[in-house]
Amino acid sequence: GTLHLNGVTVKVPSLEKAIKAAKKFAKKYNLEVQVHGNTVHVH
């Protein structure tokens, strides 16, 4: 999967790991997580 954090793109081995990391990051910075196919966006 691919993880987008505020314009930074990170390749992640699995989508589940990407979503987990995204949710952790989003919670910390009070951001929103959106999943588009195998790409996770945090903004």
Rank of each mutant, 00 (worst) to 15 (best):
A21Y: 14
V35F: 06
K11L: 11
L3P: 02
N38A: 06
K24R: 13
V33F: 11
G7C: 15
V42Q: 02
K27M: 07
L5D: 01
T2Y: 15
N38H: 08
H43E: 04
T2Q: 09
A18D: 00
T2L: 14
V12A: 05
Y29K: 01
V8I: 13
E32M: 12
A22L: 15
N30M: 09
E16G: 09
T39A: 09
H36D: 11
A26D: 00
V42I: 14
V33L: 08
L3W: 03
K20P: 00
A26M: 08
E32S: 12
V33E: 00
K28H: 05
L31W: 07
I19L: 10
K23S: 04
G1P: 11
N6I: 12
K28E: 04
V8E: 03
V12R: 04
V10L: 12
V33D: 00
V10K: 05
K11E: 06
V10W: 14
E32D: 08
K23L: 13
H41M: 14
A18R: 03
A18N: 00
K17N: 08
T39G: 04
G37F: 05
A26C: 02
G7A: 06
A21W: 15
A21P: 00
A26I: 06
V35G: 01
H36Q: 09
V12K: 04
T39C: 15
K20C: 14
T9C: 15
K23M: 13
H41A: 12
V8W: 14
F25S: 00
Y29V: 03
H43R: 11
V40C: 05
L31H: 03
T2V: 13
A18Y: 07
V8A: 07
K17I: 12
Y29C: 07
E16D: 10
V40M: 04
I19A: 01
N6K: 08
H43L: 13
V12Y: 15
K28I: 08
A21E: 06
E16K: 13
K24Y: 12
I19G: 00
H43F: 15
A26W: 10
K24C: 15
G7V: 08
V8Y: 13
H4M: 11
N30D: 07
G7P: 03
G7H: 09
H36T: 12
L3A: 03
K17H: 09
L31P: 00
V33S: 01
K23Q: 10
N6E: 05
N38M: 09
V10P: 01
P13S: 14
Y29H: 08
F25N: 00
G1F: 15
N38D: 06
V42D: 00
L5Q: 02
K20Y: 07
L5R: 04
V42W: 05
G7I: 09
H4Y: 11
F25H: 01
A21L: 15
P13T: 13
S14F: 09
A18V: 06
A26H: 00
V8G: 05
N38S: 08
L3T: 03
K20T: 09
H4D: 05
T9Y: 13
E32Q: 12
K24Q: 09
V10Q: 03
T39N: 09
L31F: 07
H43Y: 14
A22H: 00
L3D: 01
S14W: 11
T2S: 08
S14R: 06
H4P: 02
A18K: 01
S14T: 09
V42E: 02
F25T: 00
L5S: 04
I19N: 00
Y29T: 01
L31R: 01
K11T: 10
L15K: 01
V8K: 12
S14M: 06
N38F: 11
F25W: 13
Y29E: 00
L3M: 08
V12M: 14
